[in-house]
Amino acid sequence: MSTYLRLRAVPPPALRNSATWLERLFGDSSAAVRHRLVRHHEEVLDKRYLDQERIYAGALSHRAEDRPRTQVVLGGRPVFRPDRHKPPLLVLTAAQARRVAGFLATADFDALWDVARDELVPRYGGVTAEPETWGAFAAAHQELKAFYAQTAEHGDAVVKWLPA
């Protein structure tokens, strides 16, 4: 399995429901993508992306349509690849990306950390390494927050790719 997850903002009119087209978004050089899509914003999460999702899984959702904890890192509508052994690409609509941006803008990272802490700290060196662990997850949270804020500001959708 890959050690990172890539998220890319895409203007909704440019979005295609084709795994081949979506894969090309990530295979092209940044300059080619920037030229084709006019805007370009991408976030790359390292091997901790699965654990980053655990932080958001502890967030309370008050309404069914507010399910950012299932969309922030790993969520989205799957677009299956021709090779079914590879993980699907995931797509969030512009509306879903706005909801995630809203959630992240108001989320209290420390409160989220407190819920996930007991599960995560032992995996990353225990209590003695907690300040560094907290720092790495807090930095990823800030990067996601910035990514989704910019994505929402432009009205873009999000495509997620887990290279196989």
Rank of each mutant, 00 (worst) to 15 (best):
L5I: 03
L5G: 02
L7T: 03
L7W: 02
L7D: 01
L7Y: 05
V10F: 00
V10Y: 02
V10G: 00
P11N: 14
P11Q: 15
P11I: 04
P12L: 12
A14N: 14
L15C: 09
L15H: 11
R16A: 13
R16E: 13
N17R: 15
A19I: 10
T20N: 06
T20W: 06
T20D: 11
W21L: 00
W21C: 01
E23I: 00
E23G: 03
L25I: 01
F26A: 03
G27M: 05
D28M: 14
S29V: 04
S29F: 05
A32W: 07
A32P: 04
V33W: 02
V33Q: 07
R34G: 06
H35K: 15
L37K: 05
V38I: 13
V38T: 14
H40R: 13
H41G: 05
E43C: 10
E43I: 01
L45A: 02
K47N: 11
L50I: 08
Q52S: 10
R54Q: 15
R54G: 05
I55S: 01
I55A: 03
I55H: 04
I55P: 01
S61R: 15
D66C: 03
D66L: 11
R69S: 10
T70N: 08
T70K: 01
V72E: 00
L74N: 11
G75A: 07
G76E: 03
G76Y: 02
G76I: 03
V79I: 15
R81M: 06
P82W: 05
D83S: 11
D83L: 08
D83P: 04
V91T: 09
V91F: 07
L92K: 07
A94G: 07
A95W: 00
Q96C: 07
Q96D: 14
Q96I: 07
A97T: 12
A97K: 11
R98L: 11
R99E: 15
V100G: 06
A101D: 12
A101V: 06
A101G: 09
F103R: 02
L104K: 09
A105P: 05
A107T: 09
F109S: 05
D110A: 15
D110I: 06
L112G: 01
W113R: 04
D114I: 02
D114G: 07
V115F: 10
A116V: 08
D118A: 13
E119R: 12
L120N: 01
P122M: 04
Y124M: 08
G125K: 10
G125Y: 08
G126F: 09
V127K: 14
P131D: 07
E132D: 13
T133R: 02
T133W: 04
G135K: 12
A136P: 00
A138Q: 14
A139L: 15
Q142L: 14
Q142E: 15
L144R: 12
L144H: 12
A146Q: 14
Y148M: 04
A149H: 04
A152E: 09
E153P: 00
H154C: 02
G155P: 01
D156E: 10
A157Y: 03
A157P: 00
V159F: 03
W161G: 01
A164W: 15
